[in-house]
């Protein structure tokens, strides 16, 4: 089970504003899903290593050679609050 405080904490971590109604629905739905997920918490996994990648590649690198990128106009093209030179963000207090 998951409580209201946890829902609010996680929503803040994920930067998601939830209305009080959404919070309650979220608590119920997440609790329900976690009940199913809890199946894996009961499994015997002693000595089983984790899998991050199903592929066994290593050392995939690129040479340190410049590649041309975007012009500033292109870089700023899709930004909602672009200034002449950069990406605007509101005050941080």
């Amino acid at each position: 089970m998951i409580d209201d405080e946890t829902v609010r904490h996680v929503a803040r971590l994920a930067r998601l504003r939830l209305s009080p109604d959404e919070e309650q629905v979220m608590r119920e739905e997440l609790s329900g899903i976690l009940e199913h997920i809890d199946a894996i918490r009961a499994m015997d996994l002693d000595g089983v290593p984790p899998t991050t990648h199903v592929i066994t590649l290593e050392n995939v690198v690129r040479p340190d050679v410049p590649v041309s990128g975007l012009t500033r106009d292109e870089a700023l093209r899709e930004a909602a609050h672009a200034t002449d030179e950069g990406f605007g963000v509101p005050r941080m207090d």
Binding site: V61, P63, D64, P66, V67, G69, L70, R72, A75, L76
Partner: peptide, 30 residues
């Protein structure tokens, strides 16, 4: 592959990867 620069005009050394556009992937500089 964006070139490193110090003192160039803002946002003149970017690409979809370092702007974190949707769908881009990192590749390690050897």
């Amino acid at each position: 592959g964006c070139e490193l620069s110090f003192g160039d005009p803002p946002n003149t050394h970017t690409c979809p990867v370092c702007l974190a556009h949707p769908g881009v992937l990192p590749v390690v500089n050897e």
